[in-house]
Design a protein around this nucleic acid. Structure first.
Lengths: 298, 298
DNA sequence: GTAATAGTGTCTCTGAGACATTATCGT
DNA sequence: ACGATAATGTCTCAGAGACACTATTAC
């Protein structure tokens, strides 16, 4: 006869699981925070000029304590019957009425006193929304959700020697604004090189109408977005189905925060896109060809 | 007089926090899992030849249900008064008696049924340990922790068309072994390209003596390690204080799973290292210069 | 014609891959 | 002398930056 194996208490796996008491350990709350980015066109009165673009992020105004009246990342508690990613998709849907979008897990924030209510561990997800789908939103006026233009600014840097390496502190200012509001925050990024080990840490120095530690999360996301746009194809998640190469280049430029040379840029993306026969016309200058993403691109 | 703002229930922030009942929502358990890697030398009887190296990972044998007798990643519950990173450092210390090491958050795994006991959300951290510090370990024989050589093998790939893109499935086999044990697992990685959106998913097809979904986590870590070694300096975290360029190259080779050309490799790392005046001698061939990491390298 | 953007051609510089060549030990 | 690894030199090729140049439209 084949007996199932038992543990030190003489229990089989089935018995063990039946008696398992999950409430014996104190447990934290778990939430997801959504970083929903898009690139939108600004108004340009001169019909012959191109409209400049801006990077935008969706924030919601907090209706209750804590940080009442401040702006926060959309998000909420993870319920027991959904995975983290399902919770993120649910939040995305209720905030923007958009699904089937680029979604990527960013980081999990686990400091003890992030939230004054109770211990909250929060996993942040970055979503990229294309500028045309953006119009779709507007259904959820129950909550006060608004798009903010976002920009960061290098403030200053400070490098010190230690016994075994160096410490570099960098201050970065974030600004968020739209027609009605203007928020800001200052983040200090500390990079410690000690022997062969490099460690990086972020700290909020000052935060102006931005709730919790969310400014820190946004700064981190911005950095990740900048890195990833260089070596992956996430930029296309911000584009509509058809786009011109100049529009694509504008998206790169607004994320990287610097101008690119058209010739080199076109060479770089050449085999990631497919030419179409359509042109953007009536613009007062040479019409530009529309392209689409090339999914075959390895 | 300046009254503090109150919410819709007429409560100030202080009153709100006093009455906040954290137990109103059902909460998951949160754990950290540690992926502790090192690169160790294999035995080479011929004194004139270089010893080959192998990538190794630390696993612990489970003493209780579930997965009793299987091997798992070291880790444990996050207690209410410690941050995620503190929990990771604590686990690292109790498993290896090593601190001040490269530590990086990898990913948070949030599937609903990862653990048969209860809902468990787990944040995995990758730690890189240098091969000399490795000797330090051996204190913690309470638990059965062992180093395993690790290798992965590409098995097969399957690409299909869908209405809006493609699905690529890739099967990878992981093998873990040491003098006493041999474990294995097969992971299926599904890459879905749909429009401009690319998504990637991992699934365990088969797992042989590897507990929970840990084979999937390890496969993910291996991929991340391979990527990061190309564009960051994490390789140095695996090196002792002084090393030869050939040793450094061996570490790259064993992680990338391919041979590199010495000339190009030396050029690439040239400004990340500092020459010393010491040589490795008595090796039956031209002595090699020792180098150290250059922390000034930007 | 003019203002504006679209798109191409080409030079240079840099860095990686390939491979050959020289250097230096211990026995 | 031999076997082994250490270290450098150099050719080629691919890709990025720089910049000049041509093309095409709406008014």
């Amino acid at each position: 006869m084949n007996q199932p194996p038992t543990n030190k208490d003489g229990l089989t796996e089935e018995q063990f699981l039946q008696r398992y008491d999950a409430s014996q350990f104190e447990r934290p709350s778990v939430t997801v925070d959504m970083l929903i980015f898009t690139v939108a066109e600004e108004l340009e009165p001169n019909y012959r000029k191109l409209s400049p673009k801006s990077l935008q992020i969706l924030l919601v105004k907090r209706a209750d304590h804590p940080y009442m009246g401040h702006w926060a990342l959309p998000g909420g508690f993870v319920s027991p019957d959904e995975s983290l990613e399902e919770a993120a998709l649910r939040e995305l849907w209720t905030e923007t009425n958009i699904d089937n979008i680029y979604l990527e897990q960013l980081y999990t924030w686990g400091e003890v006193n992030r939230d004054p209510r109770t211990r909250v561990i929060s996993t942040s997800y970055m979503a990229l929304v294309d500028s045309e789908a953006l119009e779709v939103k507007a259904g959820n006026d129950a909550e006060d959700a608004k798009w903010f233009r976002i920009e960061d600014k290098w403030l200053r840097e400070n490098k010190m020697a230690t016994e075994s390496g160096t410490i570099t502190e960098k201050w970065v200012e974030l600004r968020f604004w739209n027609e009605a509001e203007e928020l800001s925050a200052t983040i200090k990024i500390t990079r410690t090189v000690s022997g062969r080990i490099v460690r990086e840490e972020r700290e909020i120095v000052e935060t102006n109408q931005v709730a919790f530690d969310h400014a820190k999360i946004i700064q981190y996301a911005l950095e990740r977005l900048r890195n990833k746009i260089e070596y992956t194809d996430i930029a296309f998640a911000l584009m509509p189905e058809l786009f011109t190469l100049t529009e694509l280049q504008q998206v790169y430029e607004v994320i990287l925060g610097k101008e690119l040379l058209a010739a080199a840029f076109r060479r770089k993306v050449a085999d990631k896109v497919i030419e179409t026969n359509h042109y953007r016309k009536h613009a007062g200058h040479r019409p530009s060809k529309y392209y689409r993403f090339n999914p075959e691109w390895t």
